[in-house]
């Protein structure tokens, strides 16, 4: 199918996968026990807004859903736009599972309304004890996670990222191709 699509010049965007996003909930325990990583009560989901009336409507509906859900789970949320024109929904909640389920809600909401292709990633924030922030990024197109440990001056702590991978490999679906561990600098989360 992929070859035929290319042959006829169809650009098909891959579907987003949300199934494995809940794996981070269970992994959270291991983060804390084995890696000294504490969840920072913050998570974000990022998507590329589309300039169309359908999208505007879908977005409004998803926002409404989110508002209801957040009231229910006592989650704070805010919507921002970054320097590259992508939209971020930033969630704040001391209960990690509520963060995950609300991220899931937004992504499923967009997918159900046919805008799943617009999803870029979800991002969960952690802090190393006495250290810097560390992120686990969920890639919707591949349905898996990768670690991102930024340092100052847009450098990344690759050694630590590799360590995170080796510890978590069994519990968390992790992106095998390191070339796809795209950094996300200056995130609003």
């Amino acid at each position: 199918m992929g070859f035929l699509d290319a042959f006829l010049g169809k650009t098909k965007l891959p579907k987003s996968k949300t199934k494995d996003i809940f794996a981070i909930s269970t992994a959270n325990v291991t983060f804390e026990v084995n890696l000294n990583l504490r969840a920072l009560n913050k998570a974000g989901i990022c998507f590329k807004p589309q300039a169309s009336s359908h999208f505007t409507q879908a977005r409004a509906e998803v926002e409404e859903l989110l508002a209801y859900s957040c009231k229910d789970t006592n989650t704070g949320y805010q919507i921002t736009k970054d320097a590259y024109g992508y939209t971020w929904i930033v969630l704040e909640d001391p209960d990690f599972e509520d963060l995950v389920s609300n991220i899931y809600l937004v992504s499923e909401g967009l997918i159900e309304r046919d805008f799943g292709e617009q999803l870029l990633c979800a991002l969960f924030t952690f802090k190393e004890k006495g250290g810097a922030n560390v992120y686990w990024i969920y890639n919707f197109k591949h349905g898996n996670f990768y670690p991102f440990a930024p340092k100052a001056n847009k450098e990344r702590n690759s050694a630590f990222e590799f360590r995170l991978r080796s510890v978590m490999e069994k519990e968390l679906p992790i992106e095998k191709d390191v070339e796809r561990w795209y950094p996300l600098w200056d995130v609003p989360v």
């Binding site: 965007l13 891959p14 590329k48 590259y84 617009q118 197109k141 847009k154 070339e179 795209y182 950094p183």
Partner: peptide, 23 residues
Amino acid sequence: SESEEPELHTIISRLCQIADLPK
């Protein structure tokens, strides 16, 4: 490289992520 043109790199890597292409 990424340090020479950080903005260009970010634009492209995000689009690659959405289209699921290697950068």
